[in-house]
Design a protein around this nucleic acid. Structure first.
Lengths: 210, 210
DNA sequence: ATTGAAACCGACAACTCTGACTGTTAGTTT
DNA sequence: AAACTAACAGTCAGAGTTGTCGGTTTCAAT
């Protein structure tokens, strides 16, 4: 056991190599997600990932033996990042003492316009015609949904006892948001989008109070 | 002018070759759309299109010199088919004398679960990272949206004078439906989806009557 | 019937991506 | 200090995709 607790505990605990390895792995996974956003899932090549991560293909294939290994890691990586970002945005919005519903809607809207959601959308669509990817994505996506639901329930405790309304509110919000997100891929609806969001917030209020 | 109006007017007007050419082109475009649904846009190869259309690659490339030409044709083809199917479903639903809103919601829901919508979704997502495809798809998608809106207005004349409510109703329906469609790619929500649709129909009634 | 054009077929070269391989440098252990 | 392991780089062959090209069959017109 190398237990010379003196200077850099991270170095001491992991060693330089292990630390560098972890950093490189992170860089690769970040690069993979970035490539998925920039080139699409099927357009993402190992060459591009390595290049954007700043190392050679050979080096990358040392950390992840095959492309599918990278994908596995990237999906997991994305899942964690997305959940963290969602939780952060939601709790932050719930702290502003004003209209919690409205803040939540805005935060959610930001969430589906974030590159991380684009990456997820890209993966979801690709998984439809790629069984291997589907096998990787499906469990993670289901886990995300469960944790997402749990988070929402924690952040909005004032809905307690209104379970059915809360479920409808969540589902409705989610579908509107995601529909909005994919529609914004082709068309740029500014005012009409805002109007729908306002209407949505209005209905959420009703669901909570009525 | 070969005007021997005797038996087959189509043959007489077009000639066997022209007729066969048109039929083959249709088969190719149908095959292309089918491949997009089955293999995804980036996974669609000219080999697969030709095979599914039942002719050789060489023959296909006689009708469409390049893959991009096929894509152009397929996008246009898809646009027409989708609009026709939508109009048909909507007018049919409006004829059933019962709850027109509910029938419309069901028809719309069927529409976004149809393979043609899947193909459109596939193209939309691919276009995000493919400028050439985007250049082809964007004008067509915009045209579809305009004609879709027009159709809806014709089919539901009882909303006349309630333009703002009607716009909200349409946008809301569309986003919920499309969000529902992409969510169904990963998860299979049966009851909860139905509940949201019921809620949606309820709100559409409100928008119309209130 | 023969000539021309259009539909159709198969083979080919150029390109790209992936995974496997060999070699090199840097850090760790004894 | 030596043996060992991990990180990294570059090259290679194989598979797949696209577009081009020459050749064959089928229809139309003179």
């Amino acid at each position: 056991m190398p237990d010379q607790d003196n200077l850099d505990s991270a170095v001491a605990e992991l060693g330089w190599q292990a630390q560098k390895s972890a950093a490189t792995r992170n860089a690769i996974l970040d690069s993979a997600i970035s490539c998925i956003v920039e080139y699409g899932y099927r357009g993402t090549t190992t060459t591009a990932i390595a290049q954007k991560a700043g190392l050679s293909r050979g080096a990358m294939l040392h950390h992840f033996p095959s492309k599918l290994d990278i994908v596995r890691g990237a999906v997991e990586h994305l899942h964690k990042k997305r959940l963290k970002a969602f939780r952060k945005a939601m709790t932050r919005s719930s702290e502003g003492g004003q209209d919690r519903v409205l803040l939540g809607v805005d935060a959610f809207f930001d969430h589906v316009r974030h590159p991380l959601f684009v990456a997820f959308l890209e993966l979801s669509v690709a998984a439809r015609t790629d069984p291997e990817l589907a096998g990787i994505l499906k469990p993670t996506a289901e886990a995300f949904e469960r944790e997402w639901y749990q988070t929402a329930k924690e952040v909005f405790p004032e809905w307690q006892g209104r379970d059915e309304q809360f479920d409808i509110a969540l589902d409705l919000s989610r579908y509107v948001m995601e529909g909005l997100a994919i529609s914004s891929l082709t068309h740029r609806g500014g005012d009409r989008d805002r109007r729908v969001l306002r209407y949505l917030a209005d209905k959420l209020h009703e669901l909570r109070d009525a």
